[in-house]
Computed example of a mutant assay.
Amino acid sequence: MSRNVLERVLWQLSVERPAKERFREDPEGFLSRFDLTDEEKAMVLNFDVKAMQELGVNAMLTMGFWQEMAPNRSMRLYKEKLGATDEQTAGFSAALKGSN
């Protein structure tokens, strides 16, 4: 697993317009340029921000990726994907430390 490569992918998808366009047109083709495992590619394709954070990916990068690229950019849904409780979805946090 390469946390650094995942972080580079998420950074590009958060800030680089050409990368966003390539990913939207051909997500798997875009990801093929990076040295990612099949599991890591699946995390990106499925917007599995919890699994990425569990690997140590920076929470601000997962949040930026979500806000820019997720089909449903709801922050409530983002926090639910991280395993947030109803109480936790009411506040702001890029990561939920200690939640299962």
Results as ranks from 00 to 15, higher is better:
1 M>Q: 14
2 S>C: 12
4 N>T: 14
4 N>E: 14
4 N>K: 13
5 V>L: 04
6 L>N: 07
7 E>Y: 02
10 L>A: 03
10 L>N: 01
13 L>K: 05
13 L>G: 11
13 L>T: 09
13 L>C: 09
14 S>C: 10
14 S>G: 15
16 E>C: 08
17 R>T: 15
17 R>W: 09
19 A>G: 08
20 K>T: 12
20 K>C: 10
20 K>L: 10
21 E>H: 05
23 F>A: 13
23 F>T: 09
24 R>I: 09
25 E>W: 15
25 E>R: 15
25 E>K: 15
27 P>M: 11
27 P>D: 04
27 P>S: 14
29 G>K: 10
30 F>T: 03
30 F>S: 05
32 S>F: 02
32 S>Q: 10
33 R>K: 12
34 F>Y: 14
34 F>M: 06
35 D>R: 15
36 L>P: 14
37 T>F: 13
37 T>D: 08
37 T>V: 15
37 T>N: 12
40 E>C: 13
41 K>N: 12
42 A>N: 12
43 M>W: 08
43 M>C: 11
45 L>H: 10
46 N>A: 09
46 N>R: 04
47 F>G: 05
49 V>M: 06
49 V>I: 07
49 V>A: 07
51 A>M: 06
51 A>N: 06
52 M>G: 01
54 E>D: 13
54 E>M: 05
54 E>P: 03
55 L>N: 07
55 L>S: 08
56 G>W: 14
56 G>Q: 13
56 G>V: 14
56 G>N: 13
58 N>K: 11
58 N>Y: 12
59 A>T: 00
59 A>I: 02
61 L>K: 02
61 L>Y: 08
62 T>V: 03
62 T>L: 06
63 M>T: 00
63 M>D: 02
64 G>Q: 01
65 F>D: 01
66 W>F: 08
67 Q>T: 04
68 E>D: 10
68 E>H: 09
68 E>P: 05
69 M>P: 05
69 M>K: 06
69 M>Y: 06
71 P>A: 02
71 P>L: 01
76 R>G: 06
76 R>W: 00
77 L>D: 06
77 L>S: 04
78 Y>F: 08
78 Y>D: 05
79 K>D: 07
79 K>Q: 11
80 E>Y: 05
80 E>N: 03
81 K>V: 00
82 L>I: 01
82 L>Y: 04
83 G>I: 09
83 G>T: 06
84 A>T: 02
84 A>V: 06
84 A>Y: 04
85 T>P: 00
85 T>V: 00
85 T>R: 00
86 D>L: 08
87 E>H: 09
87 E>N: 01
89 T>D: 00
90 A>W: 12
90 A>L: 14
90 A>G: 06
91 G>R: 15
91 G>P: 07
92 F>A: 04
93 S>Q: 10
93 S>D: 11
94 A>G: 03
95 A>V: 00
96 L>P: 00
96 L>M: 02
97 K>V: 02
98 G>K: 01
100 N>L: 04
